[in-house]
């Protein structure tokens, strides 16, 4: 069952800090998550809580750099929405 993703102000802020080339990738990945969050996510770990959800988006390789993204979210109580709280990004390379 597909959920409707809602992006918190923090998640929107996180998106605006991403380079343009990565932003659409992350949005598309959140849409992929929303289509099947049960199978694509897992309980979070430190520095967040194990009773909250974490989704690791497909990384992006740009030259020598690999971009990693994690989407922190809650299920909505209506069981129809996904509340994206924040989007973590870091670069390895």
């Amino acid at each position: 069952m597909a959920y409707e993703p809602l992006l918190s102000p923090q998640a929107q802020h996180d998106l605006t800090r991403l380079p343009d080339s990565l932003r659409e990738h992350v949005l598309a990945e959140i849409e992929r998550l929303a289509a099947d969050p049960v199978h694509l996510s897992r309980p979070a770990v430190f520095p967040w809580l194990p009773n909250r959800q974490l989704f690791r988006a497909e990384p992006v390789q740009e030259g020598d750099d690999r971009h990693e993204f994690h989407v922190f979210f809650h299920y909505g109580q209506d069981e129809q929405t996904l509340h994206v709280i924040a989007i973590g990004h870091y670069k390895l390379g």
């Binding site: 918190s8 923090q10 802020h13 709280i85």
Partner: peptide, 12 residues
């Protein structure tokens, strides 16, 4: 980012 994540969680 960790601080921002938690503040966003509290806002939620």
């Amino acid at each position: 980012f960790t601080a921002a994540l938690w503040r966003a969680d509290f806002n939620f």
